[in-house]
Amino acid sequence: MRALPLLLLLALPTLARADDLDAAAVEARVRQVARDLAPLVVEVEALGGLDERFDAPETEEEAREGILTKAGFKQAHGPTTGVILSSDGLIATTTFALHREPRHLIVTLHDGRSFVARLLGRDEARALVILKIDAKDLPVPRAAPPAEVVPGRFAVALGRGLGGRSPGVSLGIVSAVGRVGGRALQSSAAISPANYGGPLAGLDGSVLGLLVPLALDGGMASVDLYDSGIGFALPLADVLAIAPRLARGEVLRPGVLGVSPDLTAKDGVRLASVAAGSPAAAAGLREGDLLLTIDGEPVTTPWELRRALARRHAGDEVTLEVRRGAEARTVKARLAAKEGE
């Protein structure tokens, strides 16, 4: 497969203007990418588990039956999607497949073969799930280099949520990168239960990311966002980096330090508050401290702090360098799990 160094393309004089978009070429590539990547895109069926309704239970009886309810939180009944990660059957999908706590997970490949899937591990902060099927010689994706995933690139979303032999296609662009604490890229392609767990691909056939039902605040998205033009994907490179831990059966959760930065501070990350009982408090951090580095990596804005923490998980130990007045100190803290998890 060929990958063009996009950054080098950018160095071209501005020959290609967006106003004379080569629509024929883009269209031909979208078709081609949909065909080429179809074998990577699998259907994930979740059978059994909790029944559910869209809205609050209508009767007390329904409420007693333990029907999963969440007012205004729409889910879906159809299959969801996954992407093959390794030729021996590791599959990435999303927690969307698991929200009903299914008894059986069945993966169907593009060639029609079905496999029983085992759930290995999950990353709650990314809504990412790793499954395993007993298959061999599967095709694997080509991840787009993170530096080449930039706003304005076309983004082809593929999924099997609609059923059918070939994956459904929707087209958008990369809207932004580094969203949800740096965990996700954002695309304007229609992203919904029709393609959660599917790949977001570039025109060159590389996979930019894995489509995930992340909500705006990092929680799980409701179906309501489905053609909002706002959808998230985990950079595939991140998925590949984190997959070994999940494949070992780990369940990763967002890590909490327990500090709130002063958003108006001009001199760096100054702590506006430190939550009582939090890892930060245990490490001796106080309101007014200036946070300089995390694990040696400088943090100069609230955003960098958020991004640094978003890359870590509950249970991870971090080394923090802080300044209080003229005094500099180095402390260690072990990130906690978010309350309620």
Binding site: M1, R2, D36, A38, P39, H77, L109, H110, D111, G164
Partner: peptide, 22 residues
Amino acid sequence: SFDAEDTQRSHRAPSASSAPPP
């Protein structure tokens, strides 16, 4: 619900449907 126009799933070997070689 939505289902396929073509009700015959392909049963080709996976290698046949993977991306072309470089």
